[in-house]
């Protein structure tokens, strides 16, 4: 199977050399297959969010190699790491991380502001995504006035605006009830059928017990406990 992301012996140490040194993950080697849904499963503190951040080019590993589309990004300076991230990944955060005071449209387009993409094209993309996620009616509403489910859809829309190949979601259902969690999974599966690679870090059985999950990587204490191809 074609791996879009591959890690080799990746470790991440926070506050290295200090008294509060934390070894978040150590010697993790995994593969994320293109076009599939992969779940990083594990209890909190197992290192799954750290791993998600590393493969999403949020930060650099202390050791090891990370290949994104075949290119080793482990030693890239931040400037170029950001560039890879902008072009490849869309992030859905646990706390949505929308900017209050801005409208739905503004929040969704925000990732593209610093890019050289043409304004008209940016708006067309945004309209299309809002339409798909049923947010068109709320486009001019400030995000803090939206319900939890709507906020998450805005977060998803924002993750999609740069047309990423991979969508990464960190504990996406932690703040949602069952109905909204199911809605989220429906959106994700439809994105997957469009060809997007999906990686979800979660400890919610509602997600990892779904039959259409392709791979589960189980983590514990900063290491891979078990990787299963379902």
């Amino acid at each position: 199977m074609d791996a879009i992301i591959r890690t080799e012996g990746v470790s991440k140490v926070f506050n290295a050399g200090l008294a509060d040194e934390i070894k978040a993950i150590s010697a993790v080697s995994i593969e994320i297959s293109r076009g599939q849904i992969t779940v990083l499963k594990g209890p909190s503190g197992s290192g799954k969010t750290t791993l998600l951040g590393l493969i999403g080019c949020m930060s650099r590993p202390t050791e090891g190699k990370i290949f994104v589309e075949g290119k080793d990004v482990a030693k890239l300076p931040e400037r170029f790491l950001t560039d890879v991230r902008r072009k490849t990944f869309g992030f859905i955060f646990q706390h949505f991380n929308l900017i209050r005071g801005l409208t739905v449209m503004e929040n969704v387009m925000l990732p593209l502001y610093p890019t050289d993409i043409d304004g008209g094209q940016m708006e067309r993309r945004m309209e299309e995504i809002l339409d798909k996620l049923d947010l068109t009616a709320k486009r001019a509403v400030r995000v803090e006035k939206l319900s939890g489910g709507q906020q998450q859809r805005v977060a998803i829309a924002r993750a999609m605006i740069n047309e990423p190949a991979v969508i990464l979601a960190d504990e996406p259902t932690a703040h949602l009830d069952t109905k909204l969690s199911e809605d989220f999974l429906n959106i994700v599966t439809s994105l997957n059928t469009e060809g997007k690679t999906i990686v979800i870090a979660t400890h919610d059985p509602l997600i990892y017990e779904k039959p259409y999950i392709d791979n589960i990587i189980e983590m514990r204490d900063g290491a891979v406990k078990e990787a299963a191809l379902l």
Partner: peptide, 14 residues
């Protein structure tokens, strides 16, 4: 030292 991804190198980079 660009080959290292230590915290120190990150600070220098920034």
């Amino acid at each position: 030292d660009i080959t290292k991804s230590t915290a120190k190198q990150l600070i220098l980079e920034r």
